[in-house]
Simulated scan of single mutants.
Amino acid sequence: MIYAFDTYYFENFAKTVCIAFEAWDSETETEIFTEKTTVTAGYESGAFYKRELPCILSLLNKINLNEGDMIIVDGYVTLDNKGKIGLGGHLFEALEGKIPVIGIAKNEFISSDDQRRTVFRGESKTPLFVTAIGVYVDEVKVKVEQMHGNFRIPTLLKKLDQLTRIE
């Protein structure tokens, strides 16, 4: 199973949504998990994980992960060639390296990272940025290219983003 997570911040709370789907090219989800939590940290440039990781870990308490499952986060796993990690890397550590984590980001991170791949989907001239840990990033790149949908953002990831924004 593949579990994709995203969080949206309202004035007084954060809403985290997880869409579960069976295969990279799935058109529909098999299950949706949601949770509203108190925001425990403000936005800190370069330390986004401090705000979002607690939200994801809280929602993960409702999900029974199994061997072979993967997690997608809206963001980065690795940030540079010096070993700095992003949200996905911190999640991988919190899960004791047992579940592969894939980061799919919409905005480019400035530093160079040999583990970052660009994915162009549909007719878009703007790429998605893919990083991963616990699985080969080049394999994931191909899978992201094959995700359902004709546009830059795959169908289920677009739905995930929309669901987080509904109070």
Rank of each mutant, 00 (worst) to 15 (best):
M147K: 00
F109Q: 05
T78R: 10
E11S: 11
A47K: 13
I63F: 10
C55A: 15
E44N: 14
Y3W: 15
L57D: 09
W24R: 06
V140G: 01
T37C: 04
G97T: 02
N61L: 03
F5H: 03
E108P: 03
K159H: 05
D25N: 12
Y136V: 02
N66I: 06
K84L: 09
K62H: 13
E11H: 07
P127E: 06
L53V: 06
M1W: 06
I32N: 05
R51Y: 03
V77N: 10
K62E: 14
L95R: 12
T118W: 00
R152E: 01
S58E: 09
K62I: 01
G86E: 09
K36R: 13
P154Q: 02
G103D: 04
L87C: 10
T34N: 11
G134S: 12
D138R: 09
Y3H: 15
E93V: 05
I99V: 09
A132V: 08
D6I: 05
H148C: 14
V73Y: 14
R152W: 03
G149I: 09
F92Q: 11
P127K: 08
G149Y: 05
T164F: 07
E29Y: 14
L79K: 04
V144P: 03
E44S: 10
Y9E: 06
I32L: 03
A94V: 02
I110G: 04
C55T: 14
G68P: 12
I104Q: 04
